[in-house]
Design a protein around this nucleic acid. Sequence first.
DNA 1: TGTCTATAGATGTATATACATCTATAGACA
DNA 2: TGTCTATAGATGTATATACATCTATAGACA
Lengths: 243, 243
Amino acid sequence: MSGLSNTALPLYEKVKDFVLDNIGNGNWPQNEKLPSEHELTSSLGVSRMTVHRALRELTAEGYLRRVQGVGTFVSPPKAQSTLIEISNIISEIKARGSRHRAEVIVLERLERPDQMLLDAFEFKKLCPIDHSLVVHYENGVPVQLEERYVNTELVKNYLDQDFTSIGTYDYLQHSTPLTEVEHLISAVPATERHARLLHIRERDSCLVLNRKTWTGQTIATVNTFTYVGSRYSLGSRYLPPQK
Amino acid sequence: MSGLSNTALPLYEKVKDFVLDNIGNGNWPQNEKLPSEHELTSSLGVSRMTVHRALRELTAEGYLRRVQGVGTFVSPPKAQSTLIEISNIISEIKARGSRHRAEVIVLERLERPDQMLLDAFEFKKLCPIDHSLVVHYENGVPVQLEERYVNTELVKNYLDQDFTSIGTYDYLQHSTPLTEVEHLISAVPATERHARLLHIRERDSCLVLNRKTWTGQTIATVNTFTYVGSRYSLGSRYLPPQK
DNA sequence: TGTCTATAGATGTATATACATCTATAGACA
DNA sequence: TGTCTATAGATGTATATACATCTATAGACA
């Protein structure tokens, strides 16, 4: 009995998902002691090093706490979402034990973007722009609208990734060296399109995070994340270094 | 010739230090291709898995960028963003060249705070709390509602400051050593009170920033900043140092 | 000259093995 | 009854090995 998912992910990622699932669905509550690496090794049918890597990474990400000689424990969910990781909504949802689903609404290459878009990228001449629009669902309820415009000169093959599972942020993060990031957060009333895609009413409050990234002097991506105000908030916690 | 430090660190930490040193002293400039894992393995005299772990962790920490089949490269410094300085609205308004005015609506010591407030501070017993409510105007137009609750045990003489000019944030910043700060950002529809104080309509979108601060284990302040959605947004821009 | 293809060489993952190190505790012992 | 100690069992690190996967490119070929 493996208990691991069937997707094409690497084994250590499946083990991570397995642990996050057990935390999320309340099977392993806060401060619960996890099965030992040895037990997970035999119950999941993978090597101890694979289990170890999964637990080590989850510890670095703040989900677990490990004490040598004693065991592994579920961490309180406090330092979870800093502003940097907020748009990695997939792991956030999984960590809460919710079911995640992504629906791709638009996926296209704009060969002739309109002037407003060209201005956003500060393009002087006509230049193709990749465009994706994805709705993220938590337990079947839409929580985030993710719209991205990508400079095709800087980011190759953007449209070829698997948008429903990987999460676009991971891809961008690893494919291009970003030198500058700008965030702009605002509260806006839902437009007709927002209302339709997010299953809310027009004028309902939405939290909008605009992110613009540069590579050197060139704008690499222009992104808009729209959260349903009544269902979501952004958090960041700052702990100064202890002396 | 190992090139690794002599301290008692684990090997993979020494390899990480070795790489960071080479980046730091300019030996490997930005976008430089690192020696391959195989080369590092033989030149440093450690196994490939140890080199691999070091490079993988440095990649996760944003120092390196790796491309399968190609190689490992020095990344520009990692893009980070924080929201620390956003609520000092007075200097923000002044920096824009606008006229600032603050109106004090409430200024009181709550000798018997209600249960909800006591819970917010995680007080077990009855404890007085200072309370201030200020509206900030930019060129005569209200843009922010600033509500603060302050632990009277930790912050002395909070009510005695000049609220209209100094700005409450500066006072708190300098009077108490904060060890932890938590921000929570959400979009909410305006209540009747919001509407009246901010000269907007009910249900208009507002951007709410909740900030909680700690001094050690004790909660020092609980603050709520409400921005008029149509007039304000929170921004942060991160520019890594150029080498 | 241009196109295609096999391949070298790079990173990525998975396993088995060995030993190091830390902690709680059972049980010996005074 | 209290203290000490050996040890089981947990995580932490290091290695050798094998294979998977991706990319640039040398060189065959039309």
